[in-house]
Each structure stands twice: as C-alpha cells, then as structure tokens.
Design a protein around this nucleic acid. Structure first.
Lengths: 145, 145
DNA sequence: TTCAATTCCTACGGATTTAGTCGGAAATGA
DNA sequence: TCATTTCCGACTAAATCCGTAGGAATTGAA
C-alpha cells in the first residue's frame, strides 16, 4: 500500500516547480539538489512527465523544466498515474480480465466492492488535491510561524 | 498503490472463514481450493494470522482453522496490517525517523500532510469494514438474484 | 496400535520490480 | 567555440514478491 519513490519524488519535483512557477525553466540539477534526489533518476521521471504533457522542457544552457499548466489544473492523482500507472489496490478493478472465483462475476463480487471502496477513497484525495492546494498550504504554514 | 497477494488472499481466506463461522474448523486445503490459491502459500498467511490471534487452529485429523472472534469484531484493516505491515503510503508517517528536506519538520511538511490525508482515507475504509459487513453484503447480493 | 489427515516449521529459489547508474548524443545561450 | 543542459538507451544491484520443498508433530478414527 505504498507510493513508490517514482510517485513520491515526482510529486515533490512537481511541487517544487509549482513553488517556482512563472520564473522560467528550472534546471533538473536545481530540483534534484533541493529535493535531495538522484539527478539521473529524477531525469527519468521528468521524461515521463514531459511525454504526458505535465511539464515542458527547454534544452541547452539556461534550460530546464516548468509546469505546462497552472498549478490549480494539476492534481496529484495525475502525477501519480503518469509515474506509477493506474491507482488501484487490485488489478481486477482496471482490467476487465476475469480470473479466480470472484472477478468472474464483478457485480456480485463482495471483495471487489471492498477494493472499489478503497480505490474511491484514495482517488477522492489524490484527484481533488492540486499543486495549487499544496502551494497554499505551504504559504499558510509559513505565515503561521 | 497495490495490495499484495498476501493481503488479498488473506482477506479472502478470512472472508471464507466468516461465511463458514460456527461450523467448526475448516481445513486449509478446503479454503485453498475454494479460493483457488496455493495451499502452501496460504499456510504461511494463516500462520501469521494465527500468531496475531485472528484465527485459531486445530491440528490433526478433522483439524483446520476458524475465526478467533466474531466476524463483526474483525476489520479488514487488522487483517492487512498483520499480513503487510502498517497501512501507509510513505514510511515517514509511521517511523519518526526524519530524512530529507521535509520530514525533518513533520508539522510543516506539506507533502507529509498530503500523505497523511491519503492514509486517513484508506484506513477510514479498511478499519470500518468488518468481515460481518462483507458477509451481509454477500447475503444481499444472493437474495437480490 | 496403526494410519491417514492435518497443522506446523524452516529453508530455499525464481521472477519481477524498484531504484537507481553510466555514457554519450543533441540542443542552446553566452 | 564552449559550458550547460536536456534527451536517450542500456545496464545493474538489491529488494521484494510469490511462491515451493520437505519433513516433523498432532489428532481422530478404524
């Protein structure tokens, strides 16, 4: 029931970009240092996020990454799906492939309904939290000091 | 963000026992066949559940397993914790060991709060669903036919 | 007493996933 | 021209997952 480092680092990187939105491209090296994460590893994650259209990149000197959309339009769920695949506790919720004594009759499957409830509760949080929400929370914590 | 087969099979086995509660010990072999799961593998899971006090066993001929408590007193969360460890998206929620730029200041950690929200939404479902709930759902689906 | 059924225990192993590393090619601004 | 930076493909060590193997101990029944 864990988020992998792909998801966790990815969210942190995107949050970092959100905090610095509007300031032009941020170099991977900068993000990696701030987030204390392997640069090469983060590079792979950024590639996936770029291909998914969540960030845009600029090559060469003074290049870097920035959000492709405003922080309010990027949910944590999107980021995690790009980096980890579907958010689901069990495969049978996303693939319709039936197997075992339960998922052959999905509507009647008591266990499947349980996992569906769990999935819904997870996506409820992840899809309704945006980078802008996190940014505002960070601001609140700062001024509360 | 997946439940492992340990958790999934374990919940299925416990659900199986709940459906047959009060009928004396059920043999591992019977459960394994009904659930279409490796007997030897399930045996390991039952050992963990037994040591945690969730099932009681009887050895020898006519032996088997049965719930140690009534289905209404066994939550899905308990089962999963026994088989998979703490229910948490990231380690820093359970271990107090700080590491990285965030978890050194847990209260101020925006990301940590996000994972906490996610954890809460998951445990909300898993700790408030009992084997008795599943049993009743199964009954309802059956009579609705 | 014998025997089949069953739990109990320890160890091992193969496949997959995770979490990176490595080395260089291509683009860009100074 | 050159330092900086993204881009790309391959590789790998370690951990985790998902079991398997083999046998000892216990129990009820014939």
């Amino acid at each position: 029931m864990r988020v992998s480092t792909r998801g966790e680092y990815g969210v942190r990187a995107m949050f970092d970009l959100a905090l610095n939105a509007g300031e032009g491209p941020i170099a991977l090296k900068t993000i990696a240092e701030r987030q204390m994460v392997s640069e090469h590893y983060l590079e792979q994650l950024m590639a996936a996020l770029r291909k998914a259209g969540l960030v845009k990149s600029k090559r060469g000197a003074l290049g870097g990454y920035e959000l492709a959309d405003s922080p309010a339009n990027v949910s944590i769920g999107e980021i995690i799906r790009v980096l980890e695949g579907p958010i689901t506790p069990v495969d049978c919720l996303d693939t319709q492939t039936a197997s075992g004594p339960y998922c052959g009759a999905p509507d009647r499957c008591v266990l499947r309904n349980l996992w569906k409830d769990l999935q819904d509760s997870m996506t409820q949080v992840l899809d309704n939290t945006t980078l802008e929400d996190l940014r505002q929370n960070a601001y609140r914590l700062e001024v509360a000091e």
